[in-house]
């Protein structure tokens, strides 16, 4: 459609009568999105940027311009460093693991084939349907130090499991396990990508005498590199913003019960607490903008890298 439109346009910057005629209709159709973009995106972005240079307090509804003080405070705030470390630690562990496990599970599904694939696909996806709060609740029990399901299972094979919820050294690993439990979405995306790989390619490779591992490296991985790249970007962005499950398990009115200290303090949790528990909305806005810039930079780097490694059909 778009290519046709380009052909019809006589000159750059000059619009046809037909194009001009539909403008009122276009505006009518787009109006919900335009209003939403202004009210819930553009104004909030500007507002939040402004807030980040103030010491706005929602209780008194007063805020004075304090320049870049919030950003300077972040540098010396130990909890910012802690929460950044925790978030990055999680992301660095979770993203590669979710890619490897997701691919492994998708390969298994793909090998099953037929109607049974439907059953197992559903089974793998079920954890994804569990609301974050319920996942948190479930893992409060699974990761329970004395009698939780995981330590029971580990005990059955003779391993004495750590105290996942209380030992600061193990809290984040427990969180990685919890989040890996719900990688069903990633699996489905890989599974769909695997099914789009033409079977003839494998046959040709077999005739040439390529083994399973070679076929995997030289056909499967390049052919689904688009899906791999996409999920890596999406999972990275989601990891950096992890909130609900962690908040359910370690924060809220019950915080301080455990002895985890700040081991589960993730970046967005610290941001949320500043805004809605300490009412430091200026400082929280500065935290938000730093997060935004970090996500933007990481995404741009990943997109850059992808142009080198990702194979797109039709290129």
């Amino acid at each position: 459609m778009s290519s046709q439109a380009a052909v019809q346009r006589p000159k750059r910057g000059r619009w046809t009568a037909a194009e001009k005629e539909v403008i009122p209709w276009v505006l009518l159709f787009l109006s919900p999105w335009i209003v939403g973009l202004i009210v819930f995106t553009i104004i909030p972005m500007g507002w939040s940027l402004w807030l980040s240079f103030t010491n706005y307090d929602p209780l008194t509804q007063r805020g004075d311009f304090i320049g870049i003080e919030n950003y300077l405070d972040m540098v010396s705030d130990k909890r910012v460093a802690t929460s950044l470390f925790n978030t990055i630690y999680f992301t660095v562990l979770y993203v590669p693991l979710s890619t490897i496990f997701g691919l492994l599970l998708a390969l298994i599904l793909n090998k099953v084939g037929g109607w049974t694939a439907g059953f197992f696909r559903t089974a793998f996806y079920l954890p994804n349907l569990t609301p974050a709060v319920a996942v948190g609740t479930l893992f409060l029990m699974i990761l329970n130090g004395q009698s939780g399901l995981l330590n029971q299972a580990l005990g059955a094979v003779g391993i004495s499991g750590p105290s996942w919820l209380n030992d600061p050294a193990w809290v984040k690993n427990g969180i990685v396990i919890m989040m890996l439990w719900s990688i069903g979405g990633t699996v489905i995306i890989y599974f769909a990508a695997l099914r789009n790989v033409p079977g003839e390619m494998y046959e040709a490779a077999r005739i040439d005498g390529a083994g399973a591992w070679k076929q995997f490296l030289n056909i499967t991985v390049p052919m689904i590199s688009g899906a791999l790249f996409f999920t890596i970007v999406i999972n990275t962005i989601a990891s950096l913003q992890l909130f609900s499950e962690i908040y359910t398990m370690f924060y809220g009115a019950q915080q301080g019960q455990g002895s985890t200290g700040d081991a589960a303090l993730f970046y967005v949790i610290y941001l949320f607490r500043n805004a809605f528990e300490f009412f430091e909305m200026g400082y929280a806005s500065a935290l938000a903008w730093v997060l935004f810039v970090v996500i933007l930079i990481i995404t741009l780097i990943q997109v850059r890298l992808s142009s080198r490694f990702v194979y797109y059909e039709g290129e």
Binding site: T41, S48, F272, A275
Partner: peptide, 9 residues
Amino acid sequence: LPGAVTMIP
């Protein structure tokens, strides 16, 4: 755009 940026406003 991350939700965290527009959450407070």
